[in-house]
Amino acid sequence: MTKKYFEHVGSFLRPAELVAARAGFEAGTVTAQELKSVEDQAIKDLVDKQIAAGLEKVTDGEFRRAYWHLDFFWGFGGIDHVQAAEGYHFHDETTKADSALIAGKITGDKHPFVEAYQFLKAYVDETGAPVEAKYTIPAPAQFYFELIRDAEHVEKLNSIYPDFEELRADIKAAYLQVIADLVAAGLKTLQVDDCTWGTLVDNNFLAAWGALTGKTAEEVRTELGHLFLTLNNDVYENVPEGLLVNTHVCRGNYHSTWAASGGYDPIAKELFGKEVVTEYFLEFDNDRSGGFEPLAEITDGKVAVLGLITSKEGTLEDKQAVIDRIRQAEKILPLDQLWLSTQCGFASTEEGNILTEADQWKKLALVKEVIDEVWG
Rank of each mutant, 00 (worst) to 15 (best):
W361K: 10
S256F: 10
R251N: 11
G210E: 05
D300M: 02
A180K: 11
Y254L: 05
N203R: 09
K319W: 04
V303F: 00
E155I: 03
V370S: 14
Q50L: 04
V239Q: 02
G87L: 07
D202G: 04
I326S: 06
N233C: 07
D150Y: 01
Y135P: 00
D170N: 12
E146D: 06
F73E: 13
F73L: 15
K36V: 05
L167Q: 01
Q177D: 07
T278H: 11
L190P: 02
T247Y: 05
V19H: 02
Q343K: 12
L157Q: 11
D71A: 06
L206F: 01
L231K: 09
K363Y: 06
A211W: 01
Y254M: 06
F90R: 00
K331F: 00
A365Q: 14
K96F: 03
A42V: 08
V82N: 00
V19T: 15
K3L: 08
R14T: 05
T216D: 02
R22Q: 14
E279D: 12
D60L: 09
A84W: 00
N232D: 15
V178N: 07
D40Q: 11
A122W: 06
A27H: 04
E115T: 13
R149G: 00
K121R: 12
D359G: 12
G242M: 04
G314S: 10
E152P: 00
Q191I: 02
Y175F: 07
E373I: 10
N203P: 02
V192I: 10
G225E: 07
L167N: 00
A97T: 11
G75I: 14
G345V: 08
K172E: 14
S341D: 06
G186I: 09
L70P: 13
D170E: 14
I102R: 03
H69S: 15
H8N: 13
L13R: 08
G78Y: 07
Y67N: 15
L18C: 14
V220S: 06
N232W: 02
V183S: 01
A129H: 08
D372N: 13
T278V: 13
T29K: 12
A180Q: 10
W68A: 09
W74I: 06
D318I: 10
G61S: 14
T299A: 12
L46E: 12
G77S: 13
V276G: 01
A27E: 12
I332R: 05
H153Q: 14
M1K: 08
K363H: 13
G314N: 08
L282Q: 07
K269Q: 14
L295F: 06
E357K: 12
G210T: 03
H111G: 06
L364P: 12
Q118K: 15
A23Q: 13
R22A: 04
G290A: 08
Q328N: 11
D324C: 06
L212H: 05
D234A: 04
A217I: 04
N246A: 03
I171K: 01
